[in-house]
Design a protein around this nucleic acid. Structure first.
Lengths: 151, 151
DNA sequence: TCAAAAGTATACTAGTACTATAGACTTTAT
DNA sequence: ATAAAGTCTATAGTACTAGTATACTTTTGA
């Protein structure tokens, strides 16, 4: 039940890109900067951000002073959207996938016990990922920091 | 967020092995029989059941009339136990694993937003898998069949 | 007693996915 | 014009997946 490095890095990068910036500074962040902050290979991150751009979650600006920025407000981008771009369906088994169903080959799908339970698992995961926006993540981070009295 | 074939087949086999049998027939089932019923390569299933046996979830009887049977009552074997033997930790990322924690390399684990959310995901999955026994699965199957009016 | 049924154990393999790395190209600000 | 930045595609090493293969051990019962 693993999140790939691709997914991990992409989610972390998106969370960084959603961080509230001081007003009237253009919220464009460079790959290199994210890579450094999060200790990720910049070249690998390149591919990941490109995929997120092609999926419409990021926009970019080329050339000097360029970089990436969110295509929509952090409130409107969920972790589920990001996850699906980078790691595919949320469901642990294809036959319970809402977004990309496929039969799994069990003798009788309707009464397959595994399918029943894995359906619950899928729903539990999707519930969290699809109802947590980048803004929510930032809010939580801030409240944790406050609680710990840091920064 | 995928369940491997190994995990899938193992869980399916365990569910079969937990099926209520007519009283006083020894509940020993052969690999071949499970493989046929569930459409799984018998040789592959062999390895899987062996792993489950070595983990103490199954017992076996060698020789003619032998086979596998559950080491404990279906009420006492959870899907979480089976899953962990075959597919490893439930957590989507190592730094939120209860059973086999490892740092994941983010700059500050305490305030890592991804970690906070993935912790929730881990708990949601573990909640289901660790609180669903083989007996529960069978009960659900039966109730689904009843509802559908089959068999 | 010995053959057949059944599990045990390990090695091997083809294919695919993962995790990058590399390099050539395009766009843009100054 | 040049350097900074993203774009795009190819490639490589490694690990994992999903099996196959093979030789063995244990047990039963004819």
């Amino acid at each position: 039940m693993r999140l790939s490095k691709r997914g991990e890095y992409g989610l972390r990068a998106m969370i960084v890109l959603a961080e509230p910036v001081d007003k009237n500074s253009m919220p464009v962040v460079q790959i290199k900067e994210i890579a450094q902050r999060e200790q990720i290979s910049a070249k690998f991150l390149e591919q990941i951000l490109l995929a997120l751009k092609n999926a419409g979650l990021l926009h970019s600006k080329m050339g000097v002073g360029g970089g990436y920025y969110l295509a929509r407000s952090p409130r409107e981008i969920t972790l589920g959207q990001i996850f699906r771009v980078l790691d595919g369906p949320v469901a642990p088994i294809k036959c319970v996938s809402q977004m990309s169903y496929e039969p799994c080959g069990c003798p009788d799908e309707q009464t397959c016990g595994l399918r029943l339970v894995m359906g619950d698992v899928r729903n539990a995961i999707a519930d969290i990922l699809d109802n947590t926006s980048l803004a929510d993540v930032n809010k939580r981070q801030i409240s944790v920091r406050k609680k710990l009295g840091i920064k």
